[in-house]
């Protein structure tokens, strides 16, 4: 092969002739991508197109009955951008996401480091526990948590009262949206930790023990070893996990919805809930879609960071 190539004139080496063989060869990867692309377009692209189209229409009950919307340009967007509640909801969603992702990552990393240092028995026990949490369906988990913080019979109120933390008899966790969203954060973080922990634990196994030992010999303390050795090696993983967590926590719906009996009050609205209520409770499908589109756009930003980092990580390696 190599010999044959050197014999080719210079010009034709720069511009290889488009032989049939070459065309088929070049097209093959794309052909293999076609089924996946088709599925993605069908299940994601088309609905997204419809969503965007809907967001430029007045689409209420009247239009629903007739299956025909009325185009109003950017009307829905103007409405939501001038709606103070919308901006409250966006701010709440951003803060909520930040808190959830932060707690998930900190606790997840901590537990991963802990597992790495545990004996075999405890490690197995903890891992099994984590996998069980992971395996619990969201609906089931939220209902269990809901019973635990029940107003009248909840074990949380009972325990806190017995421990003399205060009088929690008939304490309503959902009167204040701070404590209510706090409970919801607990459910989400609890459910998200296993994935982060198990992934990071796998990552920790890749940290060469020699590096750690060398650092220790040089007199580095535990914190410094973590900061200077472990963290940089885990960084790509941490960034990917954080990006994924942002994507997941930004669109939380079920935890809020089920925890609050499918009727969350307005001070619990996150973007997903707000879009749902506008669409399906108030029959303003156009407005709801506009909110959803803004949500998708914000998610895109997070995704871009994630993809860029993935590509970068690949280059570094």
């Amino acid at each position: 092969m190599a010999v044959a190539e050197t014999e080719l004139p210079l010009a034709s080496r720069r511009r290889p002739r488009l032989s049939r063989h070459r065309v088929v060869g070049a097209a093959a990867p794309y052909a293999l991508l076609v089924p996946t692309a088709a599925v993605i377009v069908a299940v994601l692209g088309y609905p997204l197109y419809l969503l965007i189209r809907l967001s430029f229409q007045k689409y209420g009950l009247f239009e629903l009955v007739r299956h025909k919307g009325k185009s109003i340009g950017f009307g829905n967007y103007t409405t939501i951008f001038h709606d103070a509640q919308f901006w409250h909801v966006v701010a709440r969603t951003v803060v909520f996401t930040a808190v959830n992702v932060g707690l998930t990552m900190i606790l997840g990393t901590g537990i991963a480091l802990l597992i790495a240092r545990l004996g075999r028995f405890m490690r197995t026990l903890l891992t099994v526990g984590l996998v069980l949490v992971w395996a619990t369906p969201v609906v089931v988990a939220v209902n269990i948590w809901r019973w635990m913080v029940d107003y009248e019979f909840g074990v949380a109120n009972w325990t806190l009262t017995k421990l003399h933390v205060g009088d929690f008899q008939h304490h309503d966790w959902f009167v204040s949206n701070w404590s209510g969203l706090g409970v919801i954060t607990a459910v989400i973080v609890w459910g998200a930790i296993p994935f982060v922990t198990i992934t990071l634990y796998a990552g920790l196994a890749q940290v060469p023990q020699e590096l750690v030992e060398a650092a220790q010999i040089d007199g580095a303390r535990a914190w410094n070893v973590f900061r200077e050795v472990t963290l940089p090696l885990l960084k790509p993983l941490l960034i990917i996990l954080t990006s994924l967590s942002i994507i997941w926590d930004f669109q939380v719906f079920n935890q809020v919805w089920i925890m609050l009996g499918e009727r969350p009050s307005q001070d619990y609205y996150l973007m997903s809930i707000y879009a749902f209520v506008q669409s399906f409770r108030i029959n303003e499908y156009g407005l709801g879609s506009a909110i959803a589109v803004v949500m998708v756009a914000l998610m895109m930003v997070a995704t871009v960071v994630y993809v860029r980092q993935m590509v970068k990580t690949g280059e570094v390696r």
Binding site: Y46, L50, H67, F280, G288
Partner: peptide, 23 residues
């Protein structure tokens, strides 16, 4: 987690499908 959003999107798809079949 994404179920509702997906449901909303599917709902939109149903709208379109319904529009074409209802007639």
């Amino acid at each position: 987690m994404k179920a509702r959003v997906i449901a909303a999107v599917l709902f939109a798809a149903v709208l379109a499908a319904a529009a074409s079949t209802a007639s």
